[in-house]
């Protein structure tokens, strides 16, 4: 049994009086792609924000590589090797592509050798190199997604949290995003993916969790969830 890289136990979170997460438990194994699927409002983004330190949980624990990080500041989590690619991409619109990428390496642990990492990101996403001096706010959604991903890689994460990376993208870009995720897994990254695009996400997943109303309703391998009648009916339209 491998030791999980990330384990979440009894996580609860709320926005003011509205509770969003109730007793969420899941693990992410090193080197795997773990997928969270579920409808809008099921709590996927809240989980991601809790993991990144943007939302503070009301109860429960988050462990990353053996350390409890439940109440660690967000910048310390980035420095420890956990990086969020946020929903809506959140690039810095008034900065160039290259400045966005360099900001990705602002964490002390990532500063040394950020030039090599920049070259690595440009190799992985040649489009970003072509546009390195363009203002990020003027790029298409797909390009901004690439930029957000590249910016995340600059932090040299071991665990990448991707929140809805295909939201609002054209089908051809969606395909490319999933290809990139597969490449990243092959390169040794561990990935936690929150996706509405259930079918593709489950096909890719080593392990998957179905969220409903802030709880884990179903857990299993990606293939198991794909075969589950509940998932097929509610999320795949079959």
């Amino acid at each position: 049994m491998t030791v999980p890289m990330l384990s979440v136990s009894s996580l609860r979170a709320a926005y003011g009086p509205v509770q969003v997460l109730f007793e969420v438990n899941f693990d992410v194994l090193p080197g795997s792609v773990t997928t969270l699927i579920g409808a809008n409002g099921a709590g996927k983004t809240t989980i991601m924000k809790s993991l990144a330190g943007l939302v503070s949980p009301t109860a429960g624990e988050i462990r990353f590589e053996g350390e409890y990080i439940t109440h660690t500041a967000s910048h310390d989590r980035v420095n420890a090797g956990l990086c969020l690619i946020p929903e809506g991409r959140l690039v810095f619109p008034g900065m160039t592509v290259e400045q966005n990428l360099r900001l990705g390496a602002i964490a002390p642990a990532a500063r040394a050798g950020h030039s090599e990492m920049l070259a690595e990101v440009f190799r992985r996403f040649p489009r970003l190199e072509q546009r390195r001096n363009q203002q990020a706010g003027l790029m298409s959604g797909g390009e901004q997604q690439m930029l957000a991903l590249g910016r995340g890689l600059m932090a040299r994460p071991r665990l990448i949290l991707m929140d809805e990376p295909t939201l609002g993208l054209a089908p051809v870009m969606v395909k490319q995003v999933f290809e990139t995720i597969e490449e990243l897994r092959a390169a040794g990254f561990t990935i936690l993916l929150a996706e509405q695009n259930a079918k593709v996400a489950l096909e890719l997943a080593d392990r998957a969790y179905l969220l409903e109303n802030g709880r884990v309703a179903l857990a299993g391998s990606g293939a198991e969830l794909l075969d589950s009648p509940e998932v097929r009916r509610a999320y795949l339209g079959m």
Partner: peptide, 21 residues
């Protein structure tokens, strides 16, 4: 750079690891 990042997008600055406080 961190300061400009916070001005442009506070949440994104936190995401990349700027010490907001």
């Amino acid at each position: 750079w961190g300061l400009r990042a916070v001005i442009q997008r506070r949440e994104a600055a936190q995401v990349v690891g700027v010490n907001l406080n």
